[in-house]
Structures are given as structure tokens and as C-alpha cells.
Computed example of a mutant assay.
Amino acid sequence: MKKIVITGAANGIGKATAVACVKAGYYVIAADIDRLGLQTLQAILPPHRLETHLADFSQAHVYQSFISNLYDVHKHRALYALVNNAGIYHGKSIYDYTNAEVDEIWAVNLKSLVYLSKDFARRESAAGYSRSIVNITSVAGEVGSMDALYGATKAGVIGLTKANAWNFAPRIRVNAVSPGLIRDTSIHDRIPEHRRREYERQEIIKEPIQPDGVADVILFLLSEQSRHMTGKVIAVDNGAYPR
């Protein structure tokens, strides 16, 4: 059974992706700082297809050891894919960030991806068949954000995706999903109302995007159906920002 690591798996896009992956026949290793959210995931998914880890990816000792611990401590012999979904969004001006918040968003949204990705690639680069990394960026990383730190880190995810597609080839494909306005997530409620209205005005498909709509695209990028794709950024935004 192919094993997929999903960070930020307790809520929103991460939770929807975990559910979709289990339905598709994968074994999910779900990591999140939200203990109650992980418990909810345990309640809805079969225990023989799910493993959960309480993990704070703002902490260097966590993201620097997480992947190696899956192999060396938890005795996983091989991992098929990594979904870097964990992220934070404050929805406020750069002037209002504390030094601690700057360090935290940098660590969770970008720096942890550097370590998780390279450690996964180092372990799996000699695998007999291709592996996949899917990074979750944002439309904010492509067109900007009133939350400058969020937009900057998500732009960094795009750069990292493209660079690692080169670094980890040919065995490991690296792609990214760039969501627009996604409902029923913790981020949605933090977006200022005027920005939500602007996103909605730009959408040319009017059916609201739910987390499972993003999960469907992630599942495609994990599958062999996308075997010829690497270094790509796939927008899931109802056509709001043609680019």
C-alpha cells in the first residue's frame, strides 16, 4: 500500500486530501499541530489506513527530524509521496507583525518545506518507481496579498517547487497547487471581507470552491496520470486570475 505524508492534515484542504487519499487506496500519515482535528480524522477514517502525528512545524527540531523519524523510529520502509500543506495566515498588515510571528510564518510556510522535501527526496531518490511531492502555495504567491508575509512565503513555495523539480529529478516529481478563495477553511474566515468580495468578483466559475475540490487536483498530481508533469503550478481558483 502506497504511503502518503500530509502536513496540516487536520482541517481544510489537508483533511479533505487525507480523506480522498484513503478513498483512493492510499495509506495516510497525517501530521498537524491540532490535536482535536487529528482525533476527528481518526474518527472518520479506518485505523489500518491512517497514522497521525502531533507536530508543530514552526519548530526547527520538528521539521528537521520529522521525515527521518518516520523511517528510523516508526519503521516505514518507503514513502510514496509528500503533501506539504501546513501553513498559517494572519490576514494583517506587515506593520502589525511581531518578530515572533515573522519567524513563525517563515518557518511553517516555507522553511519547513525545505527540510521535509529534501529529507524525503534523499530517502526516496533511488526508488524503483517515481515518487511525488505536492506543495500547497496560493494565488497570493502569484498575484500578491495584503498580508505581505503570507504572499512572500507562498511565492517562495512556487520558487522552491520549480527548483526542486530540477534538484530531485528524475525519480521525484515536484508540483504545486495554487488555490484561490477556498471556503470552509481556517484561512477563509481571516481574509478581510473586502478581499473576499474581490476574489469572488474575479471568479468566472461561480460554484464556490470547497477543500475537496482542491483535494481532487492534489490526488491527480499524486497519481500516475500526472507522470509527465513536474515543476508545474496548477491553479484552483475558478478562473479568477488567468495567467
Results as ranks from 00 to 15, higher is better:
Ala127Tyr: 11
Val19Ile: 08
Trp166Met: 11
Gly239Cys: 13
Gln202Val: 15
Val83Lys: 03
Ala240Leu: 13
Ile187Trp: 01
Ala20Cys: 00
Val22Lys: 02
Arg183Gln: 13
Lys162Met: 02
Thr52Phe: 08
Ser138Ile: 11
Leu38Asp: 06
Leu116Ala: 07
Ala43Lys: 08
Asn175Cys: 06
Asn69Lys: 03
Asp72Ile: 09
Glu124Lys: 09
Ser125Ala: 09
Ile29Cys: 05
Ile4Thr: 01
Lys111Pro: 04
Lys15Met: 06
Ser117Thr: 08
Ser117Ile: 11
Ala31Cys: 03
Arg197Asp: 04
Leu41Thr: 07
Gly87Phe: 01
Arg122Glu: 14
Gln64Pro: 00
Arg171Glu: 02
Ser186Met: 12
Val114Gln: 08
Ser58Gln: 00
Glu104Met: 04
Tyr26Glu: 02
His48Leu: 02
Thr17Lys: 01
Ile187Thr: 12
Ile133Gly: 10
Ala140Phe: 11
Ile4Asp: 01
Asn109Met: 05
Asp96Glu: 10
Ile218Phe: 11
Ala235Thr: 12
Asp96Thr: 05
Pro211Asp: 15
Pro242Glu: 10
Ser223Ile: 15
Ala148Met: 12
Val134Ala: 08
Val236Thr: 14
Ile158Lys: 13
Arg173Gly: 10
Gly151Phe: 11
Arg131Met: 04
Pro170Cys: 06
Glu193Pro: 14
Ile33Gly: 05
Leu160Phe: 12
Leu221Ala: 13
His194Arg: 15
Ser65His: 07
Leu79Glu: 01
Lys111Gln: 09
Ile13Thr: 04
Leu181Pro: 04
Tyr241Gln: 07
Ala100Cys: 00
Gln225Val: 14
Ala81Gly: 09
Gly25Asn: 03
Val22Met: 06
Trp106Phe: 09
His61Ser: 05
Leu79Gln: 03
Leu36Ile: 05
Ala18Trp: 01
Ser58Trp: 00
Arg190Val: 08
Thr153Ala: 10
Ser132Gly: 11
Ala60Gln: 06
Asn99His: 01
Pro192Trp: 10
Arg35Asp: 03
Gln225Met: 15
Arg123Tyr: 08
Gln210Val: 14
Val217Asn: 09
Asn135Ser: 13
Ser112Lys: 00
Thr153Tyr: 08
Gly12Ser: 05
Tyr115Ser: 11
Asp96Arg: 05
Lys15Trp: 03
Lys232Asp: 03
Lys232Arg: 13
Ile182Thr: 12
Leu36Asp: 06
Ser226Pro: 14
Glu51Met: 07
His61Asn: 06
Ala60Thr: 04
Pro46Val: 04
Thr7Ser: 02
Asp184Asn: 13
Val236Leu: 13
Tyr95Ser: 11
Ile172His: 10
His228Leu: 14
Trp106Cys: 09
Gln225Asn: 15
Lys2Arg: 09
Tyr89Arg: 02
Pro46Cys: 03
Leu54Thr: 08
Leu181His: 07
Gln39Met: 06
Cys21Gly: 00
Ala16Arg: 02
Ile218Val: 14
Gly239Met: 14
Ile191Gly: 07
Asp119Pro: 07
Arg196Met: 12
Lys162Cys: 04
Thr153Met: 09
Tyr115Gly: 05
